[in-house]
Design a protein around this nucleic acid. Structure first.
Lengths: 212, 212
DNA sequence: GCTGCAATTATGCAAGCGTATAATTGGATG
DNA sequence: CATCCAATTATACGCTTGCATAATTGCAGC
C-alpha cells in the first residue's frame, strides 16, 4: 500500500493560476459543452486540485464570467490581427476582414459550441450581458469604420444600417459554416460573403478579395 | 402524521404523455437552460412522476432528441404559416417571409436560448445532426423557391449562392435581434433585412414590404 | 537554516443527478 | 362486479456536483 504521500506542487503567481484555470475551462467547454466543465475537471486540466479554484474564484460562477470575458477578448483581437497585415486600400482592407471572418480558423465548430454554451448565462447575468454588448458593438464599430473608409458618399444613418446588415451577413454565414461545415465547399462562404457585402454597399469586393 | 397515501392519477394515452413531457422539457430549457431540464423538473412540470419518463423514454437522451425534433418542426411550420397568408406576387411573398423572420415572435431571446442549448448535442449526436441538416436545408429550399419565383433570370449556381447569402443575412440579423433586443428600434431589423436581401438579389423588396 | 505565511492539497458533506426495480392502481373487458 | 394488465407511483442506489474546512508545504525574508 502507498504511504499516502501528499502531491508535491510548485508555487505560482495568482495571474498564472487564474489564466490556467480559465484556459482549462474554455478547453473543456469546447470539447464537451458546459456540462463537462466541472470544478474537478477544470482543476485536473489546469494541473491543480479543486480546492485551489475556490481559492482564486469565490464561486464557480466567477470563473465562468472570467472565462467568457477571455473568450470575447480573444475573438476581438483575432479580428484586429487580420487588419494589421491587410493590404492598403479601403476596399482591400474590408475584403480581407470579411473573408477572414468566413474561413478557418474563425469558422470553427468548436468556437461556435463555446459561444453557444455561454448564451444562457449571457441572457441571465447582467455582467456577462454587458461584456457581450460591449464586444458586439465594438466589433461592429470596426466594421463600420472600414465601410466608412470606402470612397463613396453615405450619411450617418445609412452607414449604421449598412454596418448592421454587413455584420448580420457575416454572423449568419459564420453560423452556418460552423454548424454545417460539410454543406459548403472550400472558400464558398467567403466568396458569398464578399459578394453579399459588396451588393449591400454597392461596391465590388470580390475583385478586391481575389487580389490576396 | 400523514397516512402515506399514494398520489392519485389519471391514465392517459402514450401520445398525450410524450407530448406533455417534451413540452415541459422545452419550457424548462427556455427558462433556465439545459441544466434546468432535469428528469425530476420535467416530470413535475408535466404533471407526472420521474419514473414515468423512463417508461416512455428509455434514457434521458431520447427525450432530448424528441424535444429537439419537436422544436425544429415548430420552427419549420412557423415560417410556412407566414406564406399561407402572404399576398400574391413573388416579390411580396419573399418580402413577407423575410420581414416575418426578423420580427417577434420569431425574433425572441427565449427561442435563441433554446436553440443554443441544443447546439452541443447537435454537434455530437449524429441523429440530432441529421435533424438539423434536414431542417436547415429545408428552410433554405423554401427561401430559394421564393427567390426563383422572382421575375429575373438567374442560373442554378447563382440561385444557390444567393439563397445561401440571403439565408445568412436573415440568420445573422435574427441572431443579433435575439441576443441584443434593445440595440435596435422596432422594425429596424426587418427593414435592414429587406434592404439587404433586395441588394443581394438586385430587386426592391422594401417597396413590396411597405405594402403590407 | 530557520521561521512564517500564503499557496496548495486533502478530506468530507449535503444535495441533486440519472437510473433501476418493485409495488400499486386505474379503468377497459368480460 | 370481478379480473387483469398496462400505466403509474414509490423507493432506493451509486455517482457526481459545488462548496466548506482543516491540514500541509513550498519558499521568500531574515
Amino acid at each position: 500500500m502507498t504511504t499516502g504521500e501528499r502531491r508535491p506542487y510548485k508555487r505560482e503567481g495568482e495571474e498564472v493560476r487564474r489564466e490556467a484555470m480559465i484556459a482549462a475551462a474554455l478547453d473543456l467547454i469546447a470539447e464537451g459543452g458546459i456540462a463537462a466543465a466541472t470544478v474537478r475537471a477544470i482543476a485536473e486540466k489546469a494541473g491543480v486540485t479543486p480546492g485551489l479554484i475556490r481559492h482564486y474564484f469565490k464561486a464557480k460562477e466567477d470563473l465562468t464570467r472570467a472565462a467568457y470575458q477571455t473568450l470575447m477578448e480573444r475573438m476581438t483581437q483575432a479580428s484586429a490581427l487580420v487588419l494589421d497585415t491587410a493590404p492598403d486600400g479601403a476596399g482591400a482592407r474590408l475584403a480581407a476582414f470579411v473573408a477572414a471572418s468566413l474561413r478557418p480558423p474563425v469558422v470553427d465548430p468548436a468556437a461556435m459550441g463555446l459561444w453557444a454554451g455561454f448564451i444562457h448565462h449571457v441572457q441571465r447575468d447582467p455582467m456577462l450581458r454587458e461584456v457581450h454588448r460591449t464586444t458586439y458593438l465594438g466589433y461592429r464599430d470596426v466594421l463600420q469604420a472600414l465601410i466608412a473608409a470606402l470612397p463613396r458618399k453615405a450619411d450617418a444613418a445609412t452607414l449604421r444600417a449598412q454596418a448592421i446588415a454587413c455584420n448580420g451577413v457575416i454572423d449568419g454565414l459564420w453560423l452556418e459554416g460552423c454548424a454545417l461545415p460539410e454543406a459548403f465547399v472550400k472558400d464558398e462562404l467567403a466568396e458569398i460573403g464578399l459578394r453579399s457585402v459588396g451588393a449591400i454597399l454597392g461596391v465590388d469586393l470580390l475583385a478586391e478579395g481575389k487580389k490576396t
